[in-house]
Simulated assay, not measured.
Amino acid sequence: MSTGVVALGEMGDKTQLLAVLLAARFRKPWPIIAGVLVATLINHAFAGAIGGAVAALLGPDLLRWVIGGSFLAMAAWMMVPDKLDDAPAGNSSRFGVFGTTVIAFFIAEMGDKTQIATVALAARYADLFAVVAGTTLGMMLANVPAVFLGDQIARKVSMTLVHGIAAAVFAVLGLLTLFNVGHLF
């Protein structure tokens, strides 16, 4: 669940656009991919820990409503396209390709849709490791091809369709959570 939700949510997201920008700028895919992985692991582990803490504080009934509402809000948010406004500026290569990628991705992911989704997923599902591993895998599934294929992907894939599918997934998760049928997952 975590992998699919984040992979769909990441399509056309500013961090995916950042991956394309970094690939075009540095033309060294492997340090960029490693930087994306490290930044995502740190960011999503932090987000997952917050989600787990929220789950422990709220109790099951209130938590169900908060998570259900969060998923529905994410469904609406998915329909708002991202623009690349958090790209590294100027000569940020003093940190090298890997360091620049880690810093840029970590900052760009703060408060991003996929980070918020990770918080909600960690609050919903008790296995923090599985949630963080799944959301990280989703980020990598969306961003590794972006690093290698860059703007070729953007020309061929309808981001409106991808965002619509992701919004539908979040809406279904929200409704299932609100109606307490999340035990099916």
Rank of each mutant, 00 (worst) to 15 (best):
G69Y: 10
S70W: 10
F71L: 14
A73S: 15
A73K: 11
M74V: 15
M74I: 13
A75E: 07
A75D: 12
A76K: 13
M78A: 15
M79S: 07
M79H: 04
V80D: 08
V80H: 14
K83H: 12
K83W: 13
D85M: 06
D86P: 00
G90E: 12
G90Q: 04
N91V: 13
N91Y: 00
N91Q: 11
S92Q: 07
F98E: 01
F98W: 11
G99M: 07
T100G: 04
T100F: 08
T100R: 02
T101C: 09
V102E: 09
I103A: 09
I103Y: 06
F105P: 00
I107S: 11
A108G: 06
E109V: 03
M110C: 11
D112C: 08
K113F: 14
T114V: 09
T114N: 11
I116Y: 13
I116M: 15
T118K: 05
V119D: 03
A120I: 03
A122T: 09
A122F: 01
L128D: 06
A130H: 00
A130L: 07
V132M: 06
V132I: 03
A133T: 11
G134I: 02
G134M: 13
T135S: 09
L137Y: 04
L137N: 02
G138T: 04
M140R: 00
M140I: 02
A142P: 06
N143W: 01
V144K: 02
V144Y: 01
P145A: 01
P145I: 02
A146P: 00
A146V: 02
V147K: 06
L149K: 03
G150D: 07
D151K: 06
Q152L: 14
I153D: 00
M159P: 05
M159K: 05
T160N: 07
V162E: 03
H163Q: 14
H163P: 00
H163C: 02
I165H: 03
I165S: 04
I165Y: 01
A166Q: 04
A166I: 10
A168D: 00
A168C: 12
A168V: 11
V169W: 05
F170K: 14
A171N: 14
A171S: 12
A171I: 15
V172Y: 15
L173A: 14
G174N: 14
L175M: 15
L176Q: 13
